[in-house]
Amino acid sequence: MSQKALDSVQHTLPQALVERYEDITGAHWGIVNQEFLLPLLRYAKETLGFRLFISMDAVDRLQLPIHKPRFEVLYFLYSPAEKAHLRLKVLVEEQTPTLPSAHSVFQGALWAERSVWDFYGIRFEGHPDLRRMFLYEAFEGHPLRKDYPLRGRQPLIPENPVLENPSKGPGNNCPV
């Protein structure tokens, strides 16, 4: 069914899909041209019936064999009538990590885009309130980028130093 949806997208918006492929489990994916992202989402929602916003995320391809452009942004939609998922991808360059915000089509994208911005540093133009979703505003960098270190902790409040004598409790007056 998602194959049929991609067919009809290709028919109506011929420039919107850059590429189509099937993954190893047999599911169909469409890679979307950035400029046609919003028209495509609107068409999928209003005409094809993919009304349920499932989810959104990104992948940093830095360590994959094909690593340019660097980011993939994923959109998952669902059609309750046809019982089918629509899986879409947009490729995003590292130098200009921006995409148009989809919140005018799906309100569920409001938070999903905030979490992508938080984790990957991809900006969504036109988003009314693009704050970080999980981390705090003073956090530097974007932790799910592959070049962010695993132990790159940035505590807001300084963490307790490791005690020299492990049998001694914290504080200066604590008995040994």
């Binding site: 989810s55 992948v59 938070w111």
Partner: peptide, 23 residues
């Protein structure tokens, strides 16, 4: 997403509560 190295390359979880709470 797997790159064949024996470790996940990407694990995205679609948590039901996240979308609910956003509304």
């Amino acid at each position: 997403r797997s790159d064949g190295s024996g470790r996940p390359y990407k694990v995205h979880i679609r948590a039901p509560g996240f979308q609910l709470l956003s509304a």
